[in-house]
């Protein structure tokens, strides 16, 4: 279809406006010198950002989120890498069932995952906190990481690994010298994106974190107080910029050495 379709173009632009504009209000009002988020704007200030430096609870929550995010992304990417390789490399009995099972946490309402982990955790007599949150995040991030890695590994020439074995490398040497460098962009993309998912995740943290708030939990707690809203806006704006940067970096990495546009899609169903 070489012809143009201007009405569809206009519609598409409006839709993207609908997608993006609401989120832009966060940074806009984060610089507004007022406690209420309403027009007209009251004047420019960076006070709400400066306020963040002094909030000890915020720092604690940020550190908690980083810890959880790092552990969850590393573990889930490692698990997902092995699984992705199994799905790309082999045809095996029960392939679809296994795939469905591993993708389930992505589909099931998160509240159900959260509630069931909560029940088993407190009945085992363990205290709530960052440990169960991390475990929940590993479960939740694995299907995402696997989708990203499958998209990257698909079309990988497995005879390269055989060639390495043939040239005298054992299984570990092959992984280190051939597979890892070739999978690396995909692995980093999976790490970054799982980190972001964990970093932004709310429901599991809400049920499982107990008194150890993660960053989304901290924001949630602050949202109830009108007076605290402006600095939540500032924090939100920072998080959005940070997330966008990481996601763009991950996209760029994932496409290194892959020219085809179809592979630009993060999620394949």
């Amino acid at each position: 279809m070489n012809e143009k379709n201007n009405s569809l173009l206009v519609y598409t632009l409006i839709y993207f406006g609908f997608l993006y504009i609401p989120v832009l209000f966060l940074p806009i009002f984060s610089f507004n010198d007022a406690n209420y988020m309403s027009f007209p704007l009251a004047g420019f200030t960076t006070d709400h950002y400066e306020e963040m430096w002094s909030k000890r609870n915020l720092h604690k929550a940020l550190w908690a989120s980083v810890k959880v995010g790092v552990v969850a992304s590393v573990v889930s990417t490692a698990i997902a890498l092995l699984a992705a390789k199994a799905f790309v490399r082999y045809k095996f009995r029960g392939q679809n069932v296994s795939y469905g099972a591993i993708m389930m946490p992505f589909l099931i309402p998160e509240i159900i995952l959260a509630v069931s982990i909560l029940i088993i955790w407190i009945n085992l007599g363990f205290p709530l906190g960052l440990v169960p949150v991390t475990i929940g995040h590993i479960l939740f991030c694995t299907p995402f990481a696997m989708l990203i890695l499958i998209a990257r590994i698909e079309g990988f020439d497995f005879s390269l690994e055989e060639a390495s074995r043939d040239l005298g490398e054992n299984a570990w040497g092959t992984f280190y010298r051939v597979s890892l460098p070739l999978y690396l962009p995909g692995i980093i993309a999976a790490l970054l994106l799982s980190f972001i998912i964990s970093f932004d995740e709310f429901i599991l943290a809400f049920f499982l974190s107990g008194s150890d708030a993660t960053l989304p939990m901290y924001m949630w707690n602050q949202m109830r107080f009108v007076k605290k809203l402006p600095h939540v806006l500032a924090l939100g704006a920072v998080i959005i910029v940070f997330t966008t940067f990481i996601v763009l970096l991950a996209f760029w990495l994932r496409n290194v050495g892959q020219g085809k546009e179809k592979q630009d899609i993060a999620i394949k169903l």
Partner: peptide, 16 residues
């Protein structure tokens, strides 16, 4: 891009 940005913040923006 919107897929990866914080769900909590996307919802919160509608409160604004």
């Amino acid at each position: 891009l919107p897929f990866w940005t914080s769900y909590l913040l996307r919802v919160f923006s509608w409160k604004i």
